[in-house]
Design a protein around this nucleic acid. Structure first.
Length: 778
DNA sequence: CCATTCGATGTTTTT
DNA sequence: CATCGAATGG
């Protein structure tokens, strides 16, 4: 049964290829073949995993088992090479990737009875790693209590700066200014250096703003994202003993997604590892999609120049996709000039051609894709979580959400509004922020704004008093008497209430954090106010506040000594809280950027219009090669099928625009492409290729289990949408007609499965789950 | 000081 | 079109 699939994992092909590439071949030696950490790897993967001393670069094509190499390597270092776990630093691009890698490493270690060792390995993003080190050693020019400013904080801060400089925020847009400042920081230009190279009148203004912004951050004891990297860099450069300490500790530095590192990240990694240190980087120049954010392709293209002793391994065998998908992706990417030649290969089946569907309008596009998804789920064999819709810009997601919701198809938009950036979450955290950093004026402004009867006037007085006395804003708030005297009775009362709360919070221990949050909510009535509202949006906010309480409880359990500081760091750095856990049985919607590193059975790339996929902007010329790489990333996420859709008329922000299919269409080899009109998008004529190609070659047992799991999941999905397993008593649901309610009871099984729901508007009703079209609310 | 209303304004991608 | 921000009246 598993035979033919399993054969593909280790194909018996001749091994007449040069070392350093991963053409399939027999195991080098019997010893490796017997090691469960190495047995199922190709020679190239094995070489990467077992590389011991000195720098190494792994250029890993999509679906070539890169994550598997990284995790195996960490396990191998610990279990076979005798490296102490805490000497290993693994850096990923996102927190989500870090968490996933940590989990996978742990599983490998647990399998050999070394589960405890997993704790020691530091798996982190550059930003979290830097924040952690800066907390320990103290960043130059700040204290260890510094606050991390996210994009919103930066904007608010910049607005204050603009007001001080008497610049018009409409003319000098904060977003644009911050982009300039960030760009400068990525190029390692501080305000002075920027001013020196400023050309022209506008740059002079930017320079002034930059300088003032830096002063404000220093005054508030705050660091923005870029500063985390720059301060870490400064620490490593200026403090030899810190550098040596860290170098001595982290004997192995592994960096994932190396093609997307920027200059400061590059320097940090290299300073940590030292010239001939054990720097192990994995990346793929063809998947570099963050140039706009300062990523520097030279970091990966010139790795060998920087590290003459470096060994290179290339992983070019793809385990993921059908031949058709791979050929399409290759055909596309070959049009890039700034690129090293490479050829991917696979043993997988040819599969079915890619579909291009030209829709009449964007509405039709959403409808067709949703119909197709509904049909696929009904057909079985493909669980919802294996379907994904990708788009170039977040703005496109809405229509697809609506259509999926209308059909009761469980779906999730990945990373749209990051959890910790939601207003209600930031509101509640503001009190803790003020506690953590008494100079954080941004937090003070929030707290004041949330306290009844207090507003801009009081804030201004406090800030002024703080400035004249040289006190922190928190101290001014708590102790200054002059401010009190300036205020009228209602404000005075409000202010003393606030004082009491803050004093109480200060008297409480910094950990665990949950009681602190509870006290804030209790004393401010924040949560109650949200709960009491009848606006569903407000209720959703209340749910988010409760989710925050959960996150706090989890943090307390995981890291008992962390306390509110740990929560705040998590909040600032962890923007995409993406729990791909048990409730993950849903179709994924995301931007092409967010898709990096993921894989799905079937992928829909929507909005494949010319001015949208090579995205055209008014002001700046677009980087065609980067756009092409973005599409390349999207195509190579798919295991079995890709559908591209474009619309002849697209309504974007009010007005209609006619559109052409993407110019990239012409770059896809026509023999793997099937063009259809809208009538052609019929599932009956387009089954998924069967059997599916092997998922990136898991061991046989896991593979069989995975198949069983996939089938079980597929069976659980009803045309009506909700997964049977999802609904339990107490869950909140929405019905198209009856509105919102709470599940009281679930009974029966199969098609007879019923659910009793108490609806807010019409009372209790019993529904047949299969037909109820219930939408689960979070 | 606060709530509401109106107007203007702008959309890439994210740590 | 939707959200955000400023202006206005209570």
């Amino acid at each position: 049964m598993a035979g033919p699939l399993f054969d593909r994992v280790l194909p018996p092909e001749p091994a007449a290829t040069a070392p350093g590439t991963d053409s399939p071949g027999p195991p080098r030696d019997a010893e490796a073949a017997a090691d469960p950490l190495l047995a199922d790897l190709t020679p190239a993967q094995r070489e990467a995993v077992t590389h011991l001393d000195g720098p190494m670069i792994v250029v890993a094509g999509p679906g070539s088992g890169k994550t598997r190499v990284l995790t195996r390597r960490v396990a191998w270092l610990v279990l076979r090479a005798g490296v102490e776990p805490w000497r290993i630093l693994a850096i990923t691009f996102t927190n989500k990737a870090a968490e996933e890698m940590r989990a996978r490493i742990e599983r490998l270690l647990v399998a050999e009875g070394a589960g405890g060792a997993a704790e020691g390995v530091l798996v982190s993003t550059f930003h979290s790693f830097c924040a952690r080190m800066l907390r320990r050693y103290g960043p130059p020019g700040r204290t260890s209590d510094f606050t991390i400013y996210d994009t919103d904080d930066q904007k608010a801060c910049l607005k204050r700066v603009l007001a001080e400089l008497q610049l018009d925020a409409a003319q000098w847009r904060p977003g644009a200014l911050l982009a300039r400042i960030s760009e400068a920081k990525n190029r390692l230009l501080d305000a002075e250096a920027f001013a020196e190279q400023a050309a022209g009148w506008r740059d002079e203004v930017v320079a002034r703003v930059y300088r003032a912004y830096e002063q404000a951050l220093a005054q508030f004891n705050a660091l923005d994202f870029d500063d985390l990297l720059l301060k870490m860099l400064a620490l490593l450069e200026r403090e030899p003993q810190v550098r040596e300490e860290l170098r001595a500790r982290f004997r192995h530095v592994l960096v994932d997604e190396y093609q997307d590192t920027n200059r400061p990240q590059y320097l940090i990694a290299n300073l940590l590892a030292g010239a001939d240190g054990n720097l192990f980087v994995v990346g793929d120049p063809d998947q570099a999609i963050y140039k706009w954010r300062g990523a520097d392709l030279r970091n990966i293209l010139e790795f060998e120049r920087d590290h003459p002793s470096a060994r290179e391994v290339r992983l070019e065998r793809n385990y993921r996709s059908t031949r058709a998908i791979l050929r399409a992706a290759e055909g596309l990417i070959e049009h890039n000039r700034e690129r090293r030649a490479r050829r991917l290969f696979t043993d997988n089946d040819e599969g079915v051609p890619l579909r291009l569907v030209r829709c009449l309008s964007d509405e039709e596009e959403a409808r067709l894709v949703a119909d197709e998804i509904a049909a696929r789920l009904e057909q079985g064999g493909c669980p919802a979580r294996e379907l994904a819709v990708f788009y170039r810009a977040n703005a496109l997601s809405r229509r697809f959400e609506e259509e999926l919701r209308r059909r009761g198809i469980p779906h999730r938009v990945v990373g749209a509004v990051p959890f910790y950036q939601r207003r209600e979450v930031k509101d509640v955290l503001a009190w803790l922020r003020l506690l953590a950093n008494p100079d954080d004026q941004q937090a003070l402004a929030r707290v004041i704004g949330l306290t009844g009867n207090l507003g801009a006037g009081t804030l201004g007085r406090l800030a002024e008093r703080a400035a004249t006395r040289g006190w922190s804003v928190l101290r001014t708030l708590l102790e200054d008497t002059a401010v009190m005297e300036q205020l009228r009775a209602p404000q005075r009362r409000a202010l003393s209430g606030l004082r009491e709360l803050l004093a109480e919070l200060r008297a409480m221990p910094p950990a665990p954090v949950l009681p602190l949050l509870q006290r804030v909510l209790e004393r401010t009535g924040y949560l109650e106010a949200l709960r009491g509202a009848d606006d569903p949006q407000e209720l959703a906010r209340a749910d988010n506040v409760e989710a925050l309480l959960n996150a706090a409880a989890e943090l307390d359990a995981r890291e008992p000594a962390g306390g509110y500081r740990a929560l705040l760091d998590q909040a600032a750095l962890w923007s995409a809280v993406e729990e791909d856990g048990a409730d993950g049985e849903a179709v994924r919607l995301m931007t092409l950027h967010a898709a990096k590193g993921l894989e799905f059975d079937e992928v829909f790339i929507v909005g494949f219009d010319d001015r949208l996929l090579p995205l055209e902007r008014e002001d700046s010329a677009c980087d065609l090669e980067e756009e092409r790489r973005l599409l390349y990333v999207g195509l190579t996420r798919a295991r079995r099928r890709v559908t591209l859709t474009s619309a002849m008329v697209r309504r974007t922000w009010g007005r209609e625009r006619t559109a052409q299919p993407s110019r990239f269409l012409a770059e896809l080899p026509s023999e793997v492409l099937e063009r259809t009109g809208t009538a052609g998008l019929r599932l009956a004529a387009a089954p998924l290729p069967q059997p599916p190609p092997s998922r990136s070659a898991p061991p046989p047992a896991a593979f069989a289990a995975r198949l069983g799991e996939l089938r079980a999941r597929a069976a659980a999905v009803r045309p009506g949408g909700s997964t049977a397993a999802e609904l339990v008593a107490g869950a909140r649901v929405r019905h198209a007609v009856f509105g919102e309610g709470e599940v009281l009871e679930v009974s029966g099984s199969g098609v007879g499965r019923r659910v009793r729901v108490r609806f807010e508007r019409i009372g209790t009703k019993t529904l047949v789950l299969q037909y109820a079209n219930l939408e689960r609310l979070t």
